[in-house]
């Protein structure tokens, strides 16, 4: 049995908007084992990024708990939490905005060592340079780039620097928040391969957020589909992509354009994701679902295991 790195239970995050409550994430639970990747997919506004930030405690959760390597992350003291946080890192979508623009590439990568100098011991200049050089080799940034500034690099190279910085302290868990969606296809493939290689080398666990279903299928071992703050389906990747159970997952799969020789008809669903301020009663997907019954509009479906390892929240499978 592999070691469970992250155990999230009933995480909720409500934001206050005026006098109303916006349920960005509502009762999400998942486990991530060592060396595996949880892919999170969903439309914009489904709460994917909020979930990632809550798991890392970058924004405090309204309720729920995250157990990280056997410790209840949210209940630790501030200092302990800070120490534990070295084990978890994040790679952001926009590589340029997440790097310090006034610091050179090497200074950007060295920053984690400097921030954590108390715990790691102050490193000498030579040691620091060596570590930075090792990290740059690891992610494939040429050493000549050590003294250039982020704006001089291309998007793909910037993202590599972002990954190098995230890996500086040898984390066990890395959240990738749409790391490839702003990159070109050929560069995207390079970054995906890099992430996979790093996972094999260091037994990393990823939580990989993306809206591109093909990318998620490629990199994940498990996939969670989110809709309006809730996980509607969760299964191992192959199982989910071969037998999507929830109507929303099916629709998502159908909407992805496929490479074809003779052209295809598009069979998307009508309408857009409703406002999370005012989610529909009952099943949240009922306004756009083709299988919607009266029960769906009144009673919220329970999230349960339909087949071994395959969870979904839909009345169709009662």
């Amino acid at each position: 049995m592999a070691e469970t790195i992250v155990k999230a239970r009933d995480i909720s995050k409500y934001f206050k908007v005026g006098h109303r409550q916006l349920k960005a994430v509502d009762g999400v639970s998942f486990d991530i084992e060592r060396g595996t990747t949880l892919g999170v997919v969903g439309e914009s506004g489904s709460g994917k990024s909020t979930l990632a930030r809550v798991v890392l405690d970058l924004i405090p959760a309204t309720s729920g708990s995250v157990e990280f390597m056997g410790k209840d992350f949210f209940k630790l003291s501030k200092n302990e939490r800070r120490l534990l946080r070295r084990e978890m890192q994040i790679v952001f979508q926009n590589p340029f905005l997440s790097l310090f623009p006034h610091m050179s590439v090497s200074a950007n990568i060295a920053e984690p060592f400097i921030v954590n100098r108390k715990e790691l011991g102050r490193l000498s200049k030579a040691e620091l340079d060596e570590r930075v050089a090792d990290l740059m080799d690891l992610v494939g940034v040429p050493r000549e780039h050590a003294n250039v500034y982020p704006h001089e690099l291309s998007g793909g190279q910037q993202q590599r620097v972002g990954i190098a910085r995230a890996l500086a302290l040898n984390p066990k868990f890395v959240v990738c928040d749409e790391p490839v969606s702003s990159l070109d296809v050929s560069i995207q493939a390079q970054i995906l391969n890099l992430l996979q290689d790093l996972q094999d080398q260091k037994e990393l666990s990823y939580m990989f957020i993306a809206h591109n279903l093909a990318v998620v299928e490629h990199i994940s071992t498990h996939v969670a589909v989110m809709y309006l703050g809730k996980v509607v389906e969760y299964a191992p990747t192959q199982e989910l992509y071969r037998h999507p159970l929830h109507p929303y997952t099916q629709v998502l799969m159908d909407s992805v354009p496929k490479l074809s020789e003779g052209g295809t008809e598009f069979s998307g669903i009508e309408g857009e994701i409703p406002s999370p301020l005012d989610p529909p009663k009952g099943c949240r997907f009922c306004t756009r679902c083709t299988h919607c019954t009266k029960r769906c509009t009144e009673e919220e479906p329970v999230y349960k295991e339909v087949e071994p390892g395959h969870f979904t929240a839909c009345h169709l499978y009662d």
Partner: peptide, 21 residues
């Protein structure tokens, strides 16, 4: 370009990326 595009339902373990910039 075709090889580095991830496609739904393909089972390649790795994408064949185009090297370089």
């Amino acid at each position: 370009l075709l090889n580095s595009t991830p496609i739904l339902g393909d089972e390649r373990a790795r994408l064949e990326a185009i090297q370089g910039q």
